[in-house]
């Protein structure tokens, strides 16, 4: 019986492993190899240059600027998204107080759930196009129009000009929040109702219930969310390409590694250097993931 189970499991695992090795692991080894050459991408000829490309990265100011931007996103994107998502999910599931001893959501919560999830089903390119209008730098921009007409601001704000990374962060959060609302909602609905009942009987307020009951029981889900959002923070490619000035500007103010890779590889035809940047991005992401999973490990409360 036991034996049969393993065969069953292996049978299912084999196909994904083969696919994974072909389409992920093999390209990664190729990437590492190319990163040590001066390949231009325009012909099959190239020369092995060892670690020269990495030495160049070390002194590349734009690279370090991009790393700073990733750290900025890495800290703020999960923090804001998770906080908002938890808050909304709590309101949707438990914000309405108790009815007959069962926690209920605020009025109309089914409708809000659809509204929150909507951005998630939009392709990122569409989000980019929408936000290029939202952030429009003159009176035709949605936000500027609002600020000028309703709040009486005197001249338009150049969102992508002066607050590039904040604007990118805003668009990322807007798109991500819905998914995590649904994820946390699912987590919350799997928390046994009797725990809440007991807490309510003991006289706990909604705030106390949120921090003392809901959060601890949701901890693993939050941790998963953190890792996913962290990965998102290392990307941001499409939004920067669509929204920013001169793709990563002005003057590197919205530089992120995937965009640098694109520019070096495709625009300036330095695939070797671009690959070295890719390897650096890969190492950064791995480091983050390991750290996130290690430090986030905390006794899970079983129920």
């Amino acid at each position: 019986m036991r034996h049969g189970t393993y065969r069953f499991v292996i049978g299912f695992l084999l196909a994904p492993i083969v696919l994974y090795a072909t389409f992920v692991f093999y390209p990664i080894t190729q990437l590492v190899y190319v990163s040590m050459t001066n390949w231009t991408g325009l012909s099959p000829k190239f020369r092995f240059v060892g670690l020269d490309n990495f030495a160049k990265i070390w002194t590349d100011g734009l690279f370090w600027k991009a790393v700073q931007h990733h750290l900025f996103l890495l800290i703020l994107l999960p923090l804001i998204t998770i906080a908002l998502a938890l808050f909304f999910a709590f309101l949707l599931n438990m914000g309405g107080g108790t009815r007959g001893g069962v926690m209920t959501g605020v009025w109309g919560s089914k409708f809000y759930r659809v509204v929150f999830f909507l951005p998630q089903v939009l392709a990122v390119v569409i989000v980019g196009v929408i936000f290029s209008r939202v952030y429009g730098p003159d009176q035709t921009g949605v936000l500027n129009r609002l600020l000028i007409d309703v709040f009486g601001m005197d001249k338009p704000i150049g969102f992508m000009i002066d607050y590039g990374m904040w604007a990118i962060l805003g668009a990322l959060v807007w798109q991500a929040v819905g998914f995590y609302v649904v994820l946390f909602s699912a987590g919350m609905s799997s928390i046994p109702a009797d725990l809440y009942e007991a807490a309510v009987l003991d006289g706990a307020s909604r705030v106390v219930i949120f921090f003392r009951v809901t959060i601890p029981l949701l901890w693993e889900t939050v941790q998963v969310a953190w890792v996913y959002l962290g990965i998102l923070a290392f990307d941001a490619f499409a939004l920067v390409m669509l929204l920013s000035i001169e793709q990563g500007g002005p003057d590197g103010a919205t530089a992120v590694l995937p965009v640098l890779i694109y520019k070096q590889g495709i625009r300036e035809s330095e695939y070797g250097y671009a690959s070295a940047l890719g390897v650096s991005l890969f190492l950064l992401t791995i480091t983050f993931a390991v750290l996130a999973l290690r430090t986030g490990r905390r006794e899970a409360v079983e129920h």
């Binding site: 990664i28 990437l31 690959s275 791995i286």
Partner: peptide, 16 residues
Amino acid sequence: AAVGLLATPAAGLLTA
């Protein structure tokens, strides 16, 4: 989630 990491955005893309 951890496995998804290995499919790091763009990293594997350039070398096909």
